[in-house]
Amino acid sequence: MLKKEVSEYFSNIMEKESDISASIAAITTLLKLLEHDKSETVQELDLNLQSAVEVITNSSFRITGVSSGCALFMRFITFAKLDNITFAECKKVMLDRGKVFLKKLTDARNKVAKITLPFFVDGTNILTHSKSRVVLEAMKLAVNSQKRFHVFVSESSPDKSGTEMYNCLKALDIPCTLILDSAVGYIMERVDMVMVGAECVVESGGIINKIGSCTMAICAKEFKKPFYVLTESYKFSRMYPLNQKDLPNNFIYSENNSNDDNSLSAHPLVDYTHPSYISLLFTDLGILMPSAVSDELIKLYL
């Protein structure tokens, strides 16, 4: 597969299948590459994969979620490499395991929804931010299990993804209200918990998510409302930002506005939420406290 093909394949998934997260799209692309790869040695394969990762991360999409997915895939390849003697055998094993691997990753969202279910108590008001596929899935399962709750969705400028979330919830017949981003403080006293997704979970247990999440988290902390993060474990990423400035530019800006020389005037698209504002993380590995994230990452990468 040529670089161009990789790029096209990846963009194709990203554009056409809105239900698939960027990490999964990247991993699917890399698996496809593995399938069509004609390299003869492990080294060659590694180089090919690495250049593909580069192509994906340099694509015009914002790559917050993609990087952890790619890192996870490379780790997967490393583990598969260790066990086998001949390259042909090795590749076969990689492909076989790759299928299991991808299936586990795609099952993650349902798992998260299931473990979140007991937290939907009848009559609760939930505040959510932007659009998250995991949160939507969890609410879908909850409403299908005859839970009664009301959702407040913040509009989430600049792309108004909250409106999209609002429409999805409406379509599922979940009672919901769209609020302004600036009304988060106003609404906080009426909600029982905040439930958001994450684009990326960092080593400290904090999250990188749609701009405005940090504001919501600080506000929730002040009002002593639990702040829950629903996320798949493949979004765990080996980064340790200490403040907003530590976030890489290609996380914060999309390609259109990152080329802008005057980055002060450009609008950031994500922010970093410190783990002390997060009550619990609901992942496919179970319900975790923020401190558990580094544990998982150390187990994997050490």
Binding site: F76, F79, R97, F101, S233, Y234, L285, G286, K299, L300
Partner: peptide
């Protein structure tokens, strides 16, 4: 016996 990222990556099934 616990679910972990490591287990997902090594795809033990």
């Amino acid at each position: 016996v616990q679910e972990s990222l490591h287990k997902i990556v090594t795809s033990e099934d």
